[in-house]
Amino acid sequence: MSDLLQQIAAASDYIKKIWSLTPEVGIILGSGLGNLAGEISEAIEIPYNEIPHFPTSTVEGHRGRLVLGRMNGRPVVAMAGRFHYYEGFSMQQVTFPVRVFKALGVKTLLVSNAAGGMNRAFKVGDLMIIRDHINLQPEHPLRGPNIAELGPRFPDMSEPYSKALIARAKEIAANNNIQVHTGVYVGVQGPTFETRAEYQYMANIGGDAVGMSTVPEVIVAMHSSMKVFAMSVITDIGIREEENVITHEEVLEAANAAEPKLTLIFRELISVL
């Protein structure tokens, strides 16, 4: 057995000893979006540093706990805080929780993030359903020898974000008078925010929003045969001509303000899966 398979087994076995349910849905919460975990009933929280082989989140706005319980009656497991390549983790570490989710039984992955907007129709606080992505990160989570037990050598990426889940989410948003956009997410390394020229470049190649996460987890979820739904909160607009200095504090503030709408969509989507 490979080292990675052993590590996945150790982490999942540890979690199963604490929580006996089989989660149907896995949730990854981005910067300033961790309060969705408060919607989970019968919750059990496990700090990341107690789970074998789990990294520890170092970014403000990421609580660093695995939350297990029920949402709308369905067993779920949620990451209140994720890992990023820019923190110094390898891509294997960044995506390790997705592997553990799969080992626990997760079939559907819901992902949120805070993102910078390039689409001129967007404003701060808007929600964007991700319909596709462009991967500009410098490392790939599937690089290296493929482990057949985890997935195929060359996974298909023609529909990384489930069209059926996107349609359901749009219905939920419409029924609750929540405006949502759909768009293409550009994944970059970070940790610097983008220059004006970089924002323009990413808009030119088809991007609507940009962020420093999500793409690696989605790739591994697809490698693991999961269905994926992802949504960005637009926390800054980088493509405008006027002065627009971006700070992490402002990103967290915008994410917190938009979170109730995102939480409603995630909660209702889980109920109709």
Results as ranks from 00 to 15, higher is better:
2 S>L: 00
3 D>T: 14
7 Q>D: 11
10 A>E: 12
11 A>W: 04
13 D>P: 00
21 L>N: 12
24 E>Y: 02
30 G>M: 01
32 G>C: 11
32 G>E: 07
33 L>R: 10
36 L>S: 06
37 A>T: 06
44 I>L: 14
45 E>F: 04
46 I>C: 07
46 I>Y: 05
47 P>Q: 11
54 F>L: 00
55 P>V: 13
56 T>H: 08
56 T>C: 07
60 E>P: 02
60 E>T: 15
60 E>G: 01
60 E>S: 12
62 H>N: 10
63 R>D: 14
66 L>Y: 13
72 N>C: 11
76 V>R: 05
77 V>C: 11
77 V>M: 03
79 M>A: 07
82 R>A: 08
84 H>P: 10
84 H>F: 04
87 E>M: 05
87 E>L: 09
91 M>N: 01
94 V>K: 07
100 V>E: 01
103 A>I: 00
104 L>W: 01
112 S>E: 01
113 N>R: 07
115 A>Q: 02
119 N>Y: 07
123 K>E: 10
124 V>I: 15
126 D>G: 09
129 I>N: 03
130 I>M: 14
131 R>S: 14
133 H>R: 08
136 L>C: 09
138 P>Y: 02
139 E>Q: 14
139 E>G: 00
142 L>W: 02
143 R>M: 11
147 I>D: 13
152 P>S: 04
159 E>V: 12
167 A>I: 12
169 A>E: 06
171 E>I: 15
171 E>R: 15
173 A>K: 13
175 N>Y: 01
176 N>A: 11
183 G>H: 11
185 Y>H: 14
185 Y>E: 12
190 G>E: 03
193 F>R: 04
194 E>Y: 01
195 T>R: 07
196 R>G: 10
197 A>L: 10
200 Q>G: 03
200 Q>C: 06
205 I>M: 09
207 G>T: 05
209 A>V: 15
210 V>M: 07
210 V>C: 10
222 M>S: 14
223 H>N: 15
232 S>F: 06
237 I>P: 05
243 E>D: 12
243 E>H: 08
244 N>E: 13
245 V>L: 12
246 I>T: 13
247 T>R: 07
247 T>Q: 05
250 E>D: 15
250 E>K: 09
251 V>P: 02
255 A>N: 05
256 N>F: 01
260 P>Y: 03
262 L>S: 07
269 L>T: 08
272 V>K: 15
